[in-house]
């Protein structure tokens, strides 16, 4: 199991830095003009593929419902962006802002707790000798191989029996368990928390908890941020779990809320769904762009989808 994941997170970090210098400098060897043009052409073509839907989303969010059908999809027509945004935020007594807030709440709280729980477990596996350690780690990584969606219906039944369904907890509790956090916690603890430092702290009389919180977490902070970011994203993006667990619309995260509008069949409300989608994407795009160096470090350590 362990071997499926590239085992050299720390090494990658160094390589990455080295590489960045190379990006900016002139390449070491001369490349033929044709090869350069072909390469850039292919890269640009791929970029167009990735950007077209986003461009369409931006353009469309500025259009009224009628214009959506009557104008060129890739260029601006009437400018109804303000109307659309107002419509998104005032519909159903302003439920949309509540949905955004819920998403922040679920992803934020879930992300923080999942990070702490997972990294603490990974730290223990890296820094303490105990029987069953390998089995424990293997079991947790086994969790990565399980399609989580399959657990959702039984989880729903369990939660309904203990009265957790249709509550904040129904969405947060399952998100707290992130096997990837354990994996990354273990890798980072092994690489960046020296045993000597722990021993020294013990000699100074510090307790294990205190060592973890004052030394361990501090040295592992890049791991914490990475794990937090990716857990945040996976909770923010989750759809199946809240779809099954939540009935009360005021508890919906923004993904489920927008899906609800998308399937609302009493009216043609494309403009609202489209503009709402754009708004819901902005926070994550901003977060990703501004925190680039963190998630890239995480990716190189072998992160996982969902």
């Amino acid at each position: 199991m362990t071997a499926t994941l590239p085992p050299k997170a720390a090494v990658d970090e160094g390589a990455r830095r080295q590489r960045r210098r190379r990006d900016d400098a002139e390449p070491e060897l001369t490349v033929s003009r044709g090869a350069a043009i072909a390469t850039l052409g292919a890269l640009t073509l791929a970029a167009v593929y990735f950007l077209i839907p986003i461009w369409w989303l931006i353009v469309s969010s500025t259009k009224s419902n009628t214009a959506l059908f009557n104008s060129n999809g890739f260029w601006f027509s009437d400018l109804s962006l303000i109307d659309n945004v107002v419509d998104v935020f005032t519909r159903q007594n302003g439920l949309f802002s509540r949905w955004l807030l819920n998403s922040v709440l679920y992803a934020g709280v879930g992300g923080i707790l999942a990070t702490l729980l997972g990294v603490a477990c990974g730290y223990a596996i890296a820094k303490y000798e105990f029987r069953g350690r390998g089995l424990l780690f293997g079991t947790i990584l086994g969790g990565l191989l399980l399609p989580a969606a399959l657990l959702t219906v039984p989880l729903y039944l369990m939660f309904s029996q203990i009265g957790l369904v249709n509550s904040v907890w129904a969405v947060i509790i399952p998100a707290l368990v992130n096997p990837f956090a354990v994996y990354l916690g273990r890798v980072y603890a092994a690489a960046s928390v020296p045993d000597e430092l722990i021993e020294a702290a013990r000699l100074d009389g510090a307790g294990e908890l205190r060592i973890f919180f004052t030394i361990g977490l501090r040295l592992m902070s890049p791991a914490l941020v990475t794990v937090f970011l990716f857990t945040f994203v996976s909770i923010w993006n989750n759809f199946f779990l809240p779809l099954i667990m939540l009935t009360d619309q005021s508890l919906y995260p923004v993904t489920l809320g927008l899906y609800n509008w998308y399937t609302a069949t009493r009216e043609a409300n494309y403009n609202v769904v489209i503009t709402g989608s754009l708004i819901s994407v902005i926070p994550l795009v901003v977060a990703f762009l501004s925190l680039q160096r963190f998630w890239r470090a995480g990716l190189s350590a072998g992160s996982v989808k969902s």
């Binding site: 159903q92 309904s160 009265g163 009935t247 069949t265």
Partner: peptide, 23 residues
């Protein structure tokens, strides 16, 4: 009053709420 999406989209929600005992 809690609004639910109409018809086919609503029934799973209603069923799950009854199942959960908080309908």
């Amino acid at each position: 009053y809690s609004p639910v999406a109409n018809g086919q989209e609503a029934y799973p929600k209603i069923r799950s709420s009854v199942q959960a005992g908080n309908a």
